[in-house]
Amino acid sequence: MRRDAFSDIHPAVSFALFAAVLVLTAFVLHPAVTGISLVSACIYTIVLKGRRALLFDLLAVLPFIIVVAALNPLFNHEGATPLFYLWNGNAVTKEAVVYGLVSACMFAALIMWFYCMNAVMTSDKVIFLFGRVLPALSLIFSMTLRFVPRLVSRIREVSAAQKSTSPPMKKGVVSGVRHGISVISVTVGWALESSVVMSDSMRSRGYGGRGRTAYALYRFTARDALLAALAAAFTAAFVWAAASKAVYFRSYPSVKCAPMSVGAVIGLAAFAGLCLMPALLNAWENVKWRILSSKL
């Protein structure tokens, strides 16, 4: 991952922004909204991980898009404008095709945003956000992340050790499964024993007493407040535009889109502002650094 200015802001703000983008993208099905969301997600992916990663992610998303885009017109035959008829006499309608395409892009945008969120919301931030609300589950989450790499390297060690104690693995599924089961059963025994030592270490450090607190790794700064206010304003403007049907789109019974109006422009611009915030923040930092280093 590259240096990302948005990853440095307070997790509550970044989480809220992701949540707002995801919810609005999922619930407001509108070609312009979906488009803005998808393009912004792609831009931010480039900022976070580079162009090659974007290509890779898009290729991973492609099968979903095809399935989703095909599913709707094939099985939903409502709509006023039939385009052609299937072998069983059902109509493929223009409305169904449009809905399918838009919802496929919406799905792709969601997945791309989830990829970005994965890179930004590290386990530290998840634990920071939920440590107070769900202390036991956050702890399980943290302990599981601690366990997983240990288990994976343990699985490798056990597998290497078994090379000298058991006959070589033959090709084929059955022998692969047998080998895996044998490795897992050794690893599991160790993992469960080791979890007991872990619990001793927790109890030894006072776990289980009342009034557990959580370490605050992050501080809420003035910039975080500013960004939060900005995001809230963008969200409010867009929700207002959608609720007042200035931003409006429907596929059924016939495709209909609210005409361009001041309200629509404001709403869409606000949504674009929200979606582009992570990328713009990076651009802004870049500019600042360039000015700073030119003064040196």
Partner: peptide, 30 residues
């Protein structure tokens, strides 16, 4: 108390969290 195996007694996945773990349990202020 420090136990024998360094790996088994680390509870969380991050160094900062491990350092804070005991204080969190005691309900230490921020």
């Amino acid at each position: 108390f420090v136990f024998q195996h360094p790996d088994d007694q680390l509870v969380t996945d991050k160094v900062w969290h491990e350092l804070a773990f005991g204080l969190e349990s005691l309900g230490c202020g921020r």
